[in-house]
Structures are given as structure tokens and as C-alpha cells.
Amino acid sequence: MDQTVSIEKPPARLGSRIHGGLLALVLLLVFNALVTPNFLQLQTLFVNISQVATIAIVAMGMTLVIATGGIDLSVGAVMALAGALAPLIFLSEFGVAYPALGVAVAFILPLIVAGFCGLFNGAMVAVLGIQPIIATLILFISGRGIAQVLTNGNLQTFSNPAFSYLGTGKILGLPFQGWLALAIACVLFLTITRTTWGRYLLAVGGNERAAFLSGGPVRRVKIGAYVICAVLSGLAGLIVVAINSASDAARNGNLMELDAIAAAVVGGALLQGGRAPIFGAILGAIIIQLVKYTLLANGVEDEVALIAKALIIVAAVWIQQRRKA
């Protein structure tokens, strides 16, 4: 989706951008259908949806941050932090004594903590004027550290069906988190296209000086983007924990920042800001996930999959640069 809210007539550029992504998707699907064993199974679809949902949710938040001209490296660490907190809460004395309340707090409190992480990032960038890469590097390093300290570095396993619904529940036969991602996308899309906040978001990314001189609340908009990104990361962290019925602070969300940035860029986000293609981010997430799946299902090493991911980012950025020129 493009930044212009054209209801009647989408600009021509929109077409080519999405077509490139869709083409890649179709190619991946055809390739898998022909080559990968058991690809055309419902089970494969479920696995991929439940995997892609976390990437998509984080990538959408990342898209907002990138739209302001920033970047958020701390998303994986925030996932680990939120994911570590939830089991601590519902496994605590309080959580065991009041199971319903415990699960509710285990959902809400980690998201609030994640929100504060975003507030920290946003304040560093928008108030202190620190470069986004450096500002978010702080939590990138320390966030996971805090999560590991909280859990003493242990793997927390649990059995809590109510909480696990987040990762294993199904609606109309499809994984719950897939629906959740879709719902978030719709809300964000409407926010970007229909609200003043969304308009200011794109204006700040497009020309910060001009947005400021036109009365745009530049700081609030930027901080808002980082907060939303962090809350969505926290949610993704909870989903991962729910899927596994275990929280591993060392692995939860590891390298997620790369997946999310890649998905956002493949989806059409411009790194210099000014564009927030939310559904593009989902498409990007699907492509990233499918590439990963394709390689793994065909017996390629995990490490090689990383190289493939890097190549996708390079290709997407290269295409962006060519478009600009």
C-alpha cells in the first residue's frame, strides 16, 4: 500500500511495488508445490501461519518506526523480556491462587513493560536526538540480559491451556495468531490512512522540518511509533512462549530484528521514511517465512538460510534504490 490515501485511483507505482512481492510469493509457492515434499498439506499451512504471524506482527511495528525514518533493533530483546515475564506471573503464588486473574495479568503486564521499552527508545530518539540505531542498541543488548536475569537463565516450562490459546488456539480452523495479525493490520491500516496521527507519521518521515514547521507533533508521533512497535514485539514474544509452552529468554525473538526489517523492506517500506505499507509488511513476512521454510524443508542448513535472508534484503534495497533513480 502506498502512503497516499487514494480511494478512487491508486498511483501507478503501487502496482509495480506490490507486483514484485506477489511475483516472488507465487514463484515460491510454485517451487514448493513442485519440489518440497508434503507442501500441499493443511498441516504445512498451519505451521507457516503460526510462524509467520509473529514475524508479521513485529514487522508491522517495524514498518511504523521505519516510516519515521528510524529503525528499532530492540524488537527481539523486547520479545524475550515480555516472554520471560508472562510465565513468571502466572506461575507465581498470586497467579496460582487466582488463575483467571493471573493469566489476564500475564497478558497485560508484559505488554505494559514492552510499552515502556518503546517509550525509552522513542524518548532517546525524539527528545535526546540520538540516532535510532544507537538508541535501540541499548535495549537490544540489555533487554535480553534483563530477561535472562529474571529467569536465572533457566528454561521456564509450563502447562497453562488458557495462556497457550494465544499460540495454539484456532478460529475457523486457522491459527488464532494469524487472525490476530490480520486484525492488527486492519487497525494499523485504518490508523495510517484515516487519522491525523497516521498522516503526521508519514509527514515526519517524508520531511521532518516541514512537518514540524506545519505544526506537526513530531516528538509525539515518533515516540508513538516506537511504543507501538515495542508493544507489538511484546505481543509476539508472548505468542512464541504460548506456542512452545516454554519461555527461553536466550532464544525467544533471537534475530527477529533482522526478519522484521527484511519483511518491512521487502514489503515496500523506504528506509529513509515517509511510507508505511502495512499489508506490504505482511507480504514481506510471508516471503521471509516461506524462504526459511523452503530451505529447511529441503534439508538446507539453518545457517545457509540466514545467507538467503541477507540476499533478500540486499535485493529489496537494491530494487528500492533503482526505483528512486
Binding site: T4, L202, G206, S214, G215, G216, R275
Partner: peptide, 20 residues
């Protein structure tokens, strides 16, 4: 540098200060 937001439409540029 301080006026237009190049990638935004004429409409979005024109109403930027009026937005509130």
C-alpha cells in the same frame, strides 16, 4: 528543505497545517 513533503500528494501537503 522546509516546505514540501515530496512524496505526499498535493492534497496531503495542502492540508498539513490545517490537519488539527
Amino acid at each position: 528543505a522546509e516546505g514540501i513533503i515530496p512524496d505526499m500528494s498535493v492534497r496531503e501537503n495542502l492540508t498539513l497545517a490545517l490537519l488539527p
